[in-house]
Amino acid sequence: MCGMLGSGFLVSLQIFSLTLLGALPLGLPVALARMSKVRPLAAIARFYISIMRGTPLMLQMFAIYFVPYYVFGVSLTTDSKWQATIVAFIINYAAYFAEIYRSGIQSIPRGQYEAAEVLGYSGGQTFFRIVLPQVVKRILPSITNEVITLVKDTSLAFSIGVIEMFTVAKQLVASQVSMLPFAIAAAFYWVFNLLIDALATRVERKLDYYHD
């Protein structure tokens, strides 16, 4: 039973890692677009974030899975189901990360930009050398929060039929007429989140060498 849950957990872990791999970087251009002085760009980013945060991730998965089928007649396969899940998770989480990045970027005092400007740093140098490192420290607790939520959200892939840990647990509960698989699945999520929490604490401590 633990073995089956374990292999289910590996699938959950894949959703988790692929989502972070895609959403963490993607959030940055979205945040920059959202803050852009180019009005249409900012409006598009704002609309995108609004949809992603304002509708259920489950429905977004369905939309991404079924829309190609209904609109373009693309056939539905296990592969396309998996791809739809990952894409939905990435674009959903990118919206949340974008808003966290934006809050962090906007919290950096004007004086930092002015000091950099007077010293002759270019816009890119200012952002990557001066602003971003400070933003990372400031937003780390919010990012950790979101990452922990993501661990649990991977169970939403159950609704579309991806065989991840929660799907496996549900099947085991039905076949064995026991709630134990749910308890074990819960333990998996919890222990994994403990690890994430420990990692986040370590990184926070490492960035604790300064305050402002």
Binding site: G111, Q112, E114, A115, E117, V118, G120, Q134, Y210
Partner: peptide, 20 residues
């Protein structure tokens, strides 16, 4: 503007050092 900036230095009231 870049060439002009290379000719002066500015010290701010609240320092604006880079904290990191």
């Amino acid at each position: 503007l870049a060439r002009a900036r290379s000719r002066f230095g500015l010290v701010f009231q609240n320092y604006n050092l880079f904290p990191h």
